[in-house]
Design a binder for these strands. Structure first.
Lengths: 399, 399
DNA sequence: GCTTAGAGTTCACTAGTTGGACATAGACGG
DNA sequence: CCGTCTATGTCCAACTAGTGAACTCTAAGC
């Protein structure tokens, strides 16, 4: 940090290199680490010793049938990260470790009309419960990722107006939760976190550029560009829901007309089925009915798919991602919605961009956002919060 | 290269750090270099000596009224880069040095129907002429950036179908020119290079995320994301021209209907004025007439602006860049086209994304692409081609 | 049981950065 | 005109950290 371009920074970079290699592979022998990182065996030997002394890494004496290879893996309790996700109807919390393992995960219903304070109370309680349940050491918590269903102002960390959680507008979720838990909290909106979750654990593994489309009450997209969430300079990238599809279409809550949202989001689509299917229908219900064969619901879902496909085609022309992952309740409809999306993309996107695009349903369902929050916490600490700790214990002398 | 994470890589990184600092500032004293890079004065002293011995840098004995500060600057002939741009009607070549200075620049008309071989002949000649004119040492040429007005297949480097330069399809421009000049050549399409040019020398200075919209025969965009050109995994990012604005609009050459191009590109717009203004009108002519007050041309240009604005609004919702730079002939229309664009963006983009967006005309006009090609050559050699050279002379022992 | 080969460690060596001491030279005050 | 002051650049000794080579260790294979 203080000495950019010095040997110590090089050393730190090498530490992280080793940690990353180990994490990606799960466990490696030192020789393998040397090969994958390009470092020499001697250096790896030193680094592994340092990490072991610092508690970041565990060396299991000899595992497999090799000669005498000691396998190195991240010690499960070296660092704990927590993901918290405020959804439209529930609150989810997950606890994970540095090795990208999810140790515990729980969700509970959240009253939409609850105040922000109540929400944070509940979150705090649930986090504490899971910490107790997993028996992890509180001091090992390196960071918390927090998902909120609304726009976050990048600079101030203030939550913008949310139709989903009215009354939360103007709060600073990261500060709030950070104050309660006493650890750094990093916020992002649900679409970005969903993208991150699917990228790390779900349908986006192995891809560097993807768009995660979340269709729920609104329509949003989380963009992953070159392996990192792209928020844009103003922090509002990914607003695919307000792409204009039809200049003279229905009026949208954003003030424009014919936004994608007005053709795809729950709040605009559900009313279409009210007269035929009753008023207390949810998106989930529509999807279930569609899967059971209800023609009206099938039609509605296909139409939604076609419109989303138009939006995705635009996105595809502009960004040319290699994968689009569909999340939210709608993803449960599977081919009923994916088919029309693909068809629409094929029609409206330029062929060279559409050709190598794959449109997949999210693999994580409603868990995408919490897991993304976990991943955010992991990435925000950049692997170095912990390394700092192990460094200071290992080399107390530091000018 | 061969030793990632070793001291020599650290040293190389520090060399580049110093070079970058010097280039950004024009010239610096060693003490200033030490401060801006964070390196110690001793290290800077060593590095400067090494760079001076390698010829990358020049030390002018003592320039200003300070105590005894020797100012360090990049030596003008340390490295030469060349930019070549094949445009719709002309060929441009520029010669620049490591210090981001343009030493010479020239353009000549290019016959649209010329064969690819003829084109490369001309380019080779013009490059040679400029090299001779500037008197630079051929061996100092570090790289060439090449712009072509059509899609380049990322993997093979093959030029896709171009309506602008028919008969060039299937050629491999980088290979072709590289073979003739004997130096590495890096290709990209005109929109991306325009973006890079404006980013480095024009209206995009100081910004990390911008979109350069080039309106000419077609409509394309070059995207700069986090300071780097974004091409997308398939290399076709930025195809803003084929965003669908009206599903039942005019049929586009891409096979879809109502693409932005059909409302904005020269090939679709000029015919509108044929009956009233004659058939041999060019976009340039329309712009000139509009500036002179011709109401028909004004109207057409305003309409084009409005449609471009719709496309930019979509782009803005998705990517939220901080700046949009308009290039191509159309940019010459100034407020006549920018006004309607801004208006359209204001109407169709979500307010939070539109608020901090600035829409500017390109500052480089038709030079944007060549200069971008220069910048491409500079960035592709990553400042290290030259440093490699000075390194090998400075430290011949290398395992 | 011997050989073999890969794994990990130790050690001497080298590359490279740093802090501090030092020489230098203009600016400023007397 | 001269001494002092201060910031610059250089040199040197110290220290950090990575590397190759030699070495040890262990299990597999014959």
């Amino acid at each position: 940090m203080e000495t950019p371009g010095s040997q110590s920074s090089l050393h730190r970079a090498n530490l992280e290199r080793v940690v990353r290699a180990v994490r990606l592979a799960g466990s490696l022998t030192q020789a393998e680490i040397a090969r994958t990182t390009g470092l020499s065996a001697a250096t790896v030997s030193n680094i592994v010793r340092e990490l072991k002394d610092g508690g970041t890494v565990e060396v299991t004496p000899t595992s497999a049938g090799g000669r005498r290879a000691r396998s190195v893996s991240l010690s499960g309790d070296a660092g704990i990260v927590i993901g918290v996700d405020f959804g439209h109807t529930h609150l989810r919390v997950a606890v994970g470790n540095l090795a990208h393992q999810v140790l515990a995960e729980e969700s509970e219903p959240l009253d939409v009309d609850a105040s922000a304070a109540q929400g944070f109370d509940r979150a705090e309680q649930l986090v504490n419960r899971l910490i107790a349940a997993t028996g992890v050491d509180r001091t090992k918590i390196a960071g918390v990722g927090l998902g909120v269903p609304g726009p976050i102002d990048v600079e101030s960390g203030t939550l913008g107006s949310t139709a989903i959680l009215p009354g939360w507008t103007g709060t600073k979720p990261a500060e709030e939760l950070g104050g309660r838990l006493g650890v750094p909290v990093h916020v992002d909106n649900d679409a970005n976190l969903g993208a991150l979750g699917e990228l790390v654990w779900g349908s986006g593994r192995g891809v560097r550029d993807l768009a995660y489309i979340k269709v729920a009450s609104g329509v949003g997209a989380g963009l992953v560009i070159s392996g990192k969430i792209y928020r844009g300079p103003g922090g509002t990238a990914g607003e695919i829901g307000h792409i204009t599809l039809d200049e003279s279409g229905p009026v949208c809550r954003c003030g424009n007309r014919g936004c994608l949202e007005t053709f795809a989001a729950a709040r605009y689509v559900l009313p279409l089925l009210q007269s035929s299917h009753g008023t207390d229908l949810t998106m989930e219900g529509v999807v279930r009915l569609a899967r059971d064969g209800d023609p009206g619901c099938r039609r509605v879902i296909a139409d939604v798919g076609r419109h989303i496909g138009s939006g995705v085609a635009n996105l595809c022309n502009l960004l040319n991602p290699s994968r689009v992952v569909l999340g939210g309740d709608l993803a449960e409809a599977g081919e009923l919605v994916l088919g029309p999306i693909r068809e629409s993309v094929g029609r409206y996107a330029i062929p060279s961009a559409a050709r190598q695009l794959s449109v997949l349903p999210g693999a994580l369902g409603g868990r995408a956002e919490v897991l993304g929050a976990l991943a955010l916490a992991l990435s925000e600490m950049g692997d170095s919060t912990l390394l700092d700790g192990s460094l200071t214990t290992a080399t107390p002398a530091f000018t």
